[in-house]
């Protein structure tokens, strides 16, 4: 009985989590300039600007003070939600806190890389064995993605020429294409792109997710298992349709 009582009195639990997060690296502190360029980007890829949370990085800026409030307003006007600031001197940290934003210390030197070349994390050993080629904003991986490995395409599509085994994870900002059996987890549209899709030759996936809407293996129509399919977001439901 005491166990049950404990559970009822717990309002929340803290859990560590790794979430994909877009960093907006500021190279100018001029809100007007940012506004103009955001407007340009918005017309190019409207799907990206859907209240996407971003971290404003001011590491490249060499200014002790910043019109942070105005920059945030510009972002929000373009459907970007600043959630935190990274880097900057003490006054910037103070004004971030005053605006209700989090503050992260600057990234260590040498580790900062532009988004386009961010590789899968260190737990993705396949990086070393079978390098995934970068093409445009996407990537091609040749070989079997094995249990415990994670392959990410942070700014485009991911193409896997081979199988994705159980316990492996493939992620892409765009669509995920698997020319083989998909037995692991596939997450497309990790930055919220609802138009992203998942394609595979043989469906056995543990988890399918498009823009955060997911289906587990248990939820998948058994008749589709083992067949080639495409997975698309239809409203807020994942639609899985046969490709044959």
């Amino acid at each position: 009985m005491s166990l049950k009582l404990d559970r009822e009195s717990t309002a929340f639990t803290f859990k560590g989590g790794m979430l994909p997060m877009t960093v907006m690296e500021l190279t100018s502190a001029d809100p007007e300039l940012i506004r103009d360029q955001l407007a340009g980007k918005l017309s190019q890829s409207p799907a990206f600007f859907q209240h996407t949370p971003v971290v404003l990085s001011v590491e490249k800026l060499d200014e002790p003070h910043l019109a942070l409030e105005r920059i945030c307003a510009v972002c929000r006007a373009h459907k970007l939600l600043p959630v935190a600031v990274r880097g900057g001197a003490d006054p910037i940290k103070q004004s971030a806190w005053a605006l209700g934003l989090g503050w992260f210390p600057p990234q260590e030197a040498g580790r900062a890389r532009p988004l386009e070349s961010v590789a899968a994390d260190e737990e993705a050993p396949a990086e070393l064995a079978v390098p995934a080629d970068s093409i445009g904003g996407g990537r091609i991986f040749r070989g079997t993605v094995r249990s415990g490995q994670q392959i990410t395409s942070p700014s485009g599509d991911l193409v896997v020429i081979g199988a994705v085994n159980a316990g492996a994870e493939v992620l892409a900002a765009g669509s995920v294409h698997v020319y083989g059996a998909l037995r692991g987890r596939a997450l497309a549209g990790i930055h919220g792109d609802a138009l992203a899709c998942i394609f595979c030759r043989e469906l056995h996936a543990e988890l399918l997710s498009v823009a955060g809407n997911y289906k587990r293996l248990e939820d998948i129509d058994r008749r589709l298992l083992g067949t080639p399919v495409q997975v698309r977001l239809d409203g807020d439901q994942l639609g899985i349709t046969s490709l044959t």
């Binding site: 050993p125 396949a126 064995a129 415990g148 085994n165 492996a168």
Partner: peptide, 13 residues
């Protein structure tokens, strides 16, 4: 599955 994991390590570690 465990063998699959080991194969991943063989290819990297």
């Amino acid at each position: 599955r465990d063998s699959d994991r080991i194969l991943g390590l063989l290819a990297s570690k």
